[in-house]
Simulated scan of single mutants.
Amino acid sequence: MDDRLSKAEIRKDTVQEIVGAGASTVGEVTSIITTAVRDVANAIGGLATDLFEIRDGARRASQHLDDQPDDR
C-alpha cells in the first residue's frame, strides 16, 4: 500500500492549518481588545466616581463655610 499523500490532500492540510492559525489569531486579538475595552471602561468609571466625590466634598465645604459666622 502506498502511504504517500496526494497533492490535493497536502493542499487541503495546508489550507486547514492556515485557517486554524488565522482563527486562533483572531480569537487572541479579540480577547485583547475585549480586555482593553473593559479596562478603559473601569478606569473611566473610577474617574467619574472620584469626580463625584470631589464635587460632593467641595459642596460640603462650601456649605460649612456658609454656615460659619462672618468674623471680618
Rank of each mutant, 00 (worst) to 15 (best):
M1E: 07
D3R: 02
D3T: 08
K7L: 14
K7D: 10
E9S: 02
I10E: 06
R11T: 11
R11V: 08
K12R: 15
T14R: 09
V15A: 02
V15T: 13
V15F: 06
E17P: 00
E17L: 05
G20L: 06
G20D: 05
G20W: 09
G22R: 09
E28K: 11
V29R: 12
T30Q: 13
T30D: 11
T30S: 09
S31M: 05
S31W: 01
S31L: 02
S31Y: 03
T34N: 11
T34L: 10
T34R: 07
T34M: 06
A36H: 09
A36C: 09
R38K: 14
R38Y: 03
D39Y: 07
V40H: 01
A41E: 13
N42H: 10
A43W: 09
A43S: 08
I44L: 15
G45Y: 06
G45V: 00
G45K: 13
G45M: 07
G45D: 12
L47I: 10
A48E: 08
A48G: 00
F52Y: 14
F52D: 15
I54H: 04
I54E: 06
R55C: 06
G57N: 15
G57M: 13
R59L: 14
R60N: 06
R60T: 07
A61K: 12
Q63I: 14
L65S: 05
Q68Y: 03
P69R: 05
D70V: 02
D71A: 12
D71Y: 11
D71Q: 09
